[in-house]
Nucleic acid binder design. Structure first.
Lengths: 238, 238
DNA sequence: TAGTGGTCTAGACCACTCC
DNA sequence: GAGTGGTCTAGACCACTAA
C-alpha cells in the first residue's frame, strides 16, 4: 500500500490536533517520544522528525531530561517591540503602561464583528497609555475584550500588569494561542494628540492586533497608536 | 575523546563556510550528501540533519533528484512587500518603477561611511519613482551603489528592471547575499511631497536598506519613502 | 540506469532531570 | 536508577531527474 502523506506528517497532525483542540495548552508537556511512537505505531525516529519540524515552527520546544512542551506565544515578536527612545542605538527600552480607562459596555456593530460575536455583546474596554522614562507618553492603546471571558477584570482593584496577557493566562486560564498584527501609519487625530502631547496631524504609527485563544476564537482586538518619531522596526532579509 | 560540538554542527559550519567565502554563490549546487559524508567522514544521516537545519534557516533548498542548492535572497520578505492600493483586501499590487535620475558622483562622508568605503569614493546614484496602476506615484527611492562594482550601469541605455538586483546579479555576477531593513515613519519633506503629489507634512513610511554581497561587503544603501496611506504590513505572532 | 534527495527503521550510546 | 530528549550510525527502500 502506497502512502501519499509521509508518516511524520501524520504524527505532526496528531500533535497539532492535541493543541488546536485545546486538549493541550501552551506550557503543557506533550507525550514522550516513546509514548507517541507506541501510540501511533511508528519508530521513535519518525516521532523525532515530526517534533523537529514543530520545534522549527516554534510550536513546541524541548527540554532535555524533562520533555517536550507546547510553546507559549511570544509577544516579543510584536511589531511594536522596537519602540525606542532617545538615541538610535536600538537599545532596549522599557515602556510602562498606565491604565486610563476600564469599563464594561456593549460593543458597536463594527467591533463585535471583528471579535466575531453578536452585535451588542458586552465588552470590556481598556485604555492604556505607555510611557518611556516614566514621563514621556509615547503610545496609547485601545483594547476590547469579550467580557464573559475575563469576568471581574473591570474591577479597578485588579492591577493590570504591563503585559496584560500574563494576567489573562494565569487568572482566567485563557490560553493565548496566536495574534495577527497589521502596521500602518497616519496623521494623528486630536484625542490621541492630546494624550501624546504632540500636534494633531503629526505622524503616528498604528498597530491593529487581533488575539486568539484555543479553537481560533477571538478574545481581544486592540489598536495601538504610537509616536512615529520614537518608532523603528528592523529586520534582515536573506 | 568527548566532543563539545555535535558532528552535524561541524557539517553545517563547513557548508556555511563554502557560502560565506564566496566559494559557492546563490543558485549553486552544493556537494551531494554522500560526497559530504565521505569528505567529512560522517554518516549520511548526519549530513542530512545538517542540511535540514540550513534548509529551515532558508540558506539552502533541496530539489529531489537534482541536489541541494544555495538559496537566493528573497526580496519578497521586504517590509515594503505590503504596499497596497485602493481596497484593503491585501491584494497583490504591482508597482512599476521609473528611473528618474542616474549619475556618478563622489559620495558624502555620511553615505560613504554607511557603504563602508573611504569618503569621496565614486558612487552611482539612482533615483526611482514607483507607480501603482501606471499613474499614481506611491513611493520614491534613493539608492547609492559603489560604482566600481557595477561599471557602466550609469549608462542611460542600460534598462533598469523593477527588480534592480536581478540585473546586478546577472550582468555583474555580484551575488546579493543579504540585506538589512529599518522601517520608520515621518512627515513628508517638500521634495518628496512634490513627487508623490501630496502635502508636505503628510505621513510617509520610510524604509532604509543596506544590501550586502559575499564576505559581508556592503554594495548598496537605499532609502525608500512611500505614501503612508497606501502602506500596511501584516504579520502573525505565535 | 545512475545519481540525487526523501522516508523509515532499529539500535547504540550520551546528557540531563528528578526522585 | 528510571525516564526524557540528543547524537550518530547503517541500511533498506522509494521518488524524482537526467542522460
Amino acid at each position: 500500500m502506497r502512502r501519499v502523506e509521509p508518516l511524520y506528517q501524520i504524527v505532526e497532525s496528531y500533535i497539532v490536533e492535541l493543541i488546536d483542540s485545546g486538549n493541550l495548552i501552551p506550557g503543557d508537556l506533550i507525550p514522550s517520544e516513546p509514548q507517541l511512537a507506541a501510540t501511533l505505531a511508528v519508530s521513535q525516529g519518525t516521532v523525532k522528525k515530526a517534533i523537529d519540524n514543530l520545534v522549527w515552527q516554534k510550536r513546541l520546544y524541548r527540554h532535555q531530561g524533562k520533555g517536550t512542551y507546547v510553546s507559549r506565544i511570544d509577544f516579543n515578536n510584536s511589531l511594536f517591540r522596537f519602540f525606542s527612545y532617545g538615541d538610535e542605538k536600538g537599545r532596549e527600552v522599557r515602556i510602562r503602561k498606565e491604565t486610563t480607562k476600564r469599563k464594561l459596555k456593549p460593543g458597536t456593530v463594527k467591533i463585535c464583528k471583528q471579535l466575531e460575536v453578536p452585535a451588542g455583546t458586552v465588552l470590556l474596554h481598556i485604555e492604556r497609555v505607555g510611557y518611556v522614562d516614566n514621563e514621556l507618553p509615547v503610545l496609547i492603546e485601545y483594547s476590547w475584550w469579550i467580557a464573559d471571558l475575563v469576568p471581574g477584570l473591570e474591577n479597578e482593584e485588579i492591577h493590570i500588569p504591563d503585559l496584560l496577557y500574563a494576567l489573562v493566562v494565569e487568572k482566567y486560564r485563557l490560553p493565548i494561542t496566536r495574534a495577527e498584527e497589521t502596521l500602518t501609519a497616519e496623521g494623528c487625530d486630536k484625542a490621541t494628540a492630546t494624550v501624546l502631547e504632540i500636534e494633531p496631524g503629526t505622524p503616528v504609527v498604528v498597530l491593529k492586533r487581533t488575539t486568539y485563544t484555543a479553537g481560533n476564537r477571538v478574545v481581544e482586538i486592540r489598536t495601538t497608536k504610537g509616536r512615529a518619531d520614537k518608532f523603528s522596526y528592523k529586520t534582515e532579509i536573506r
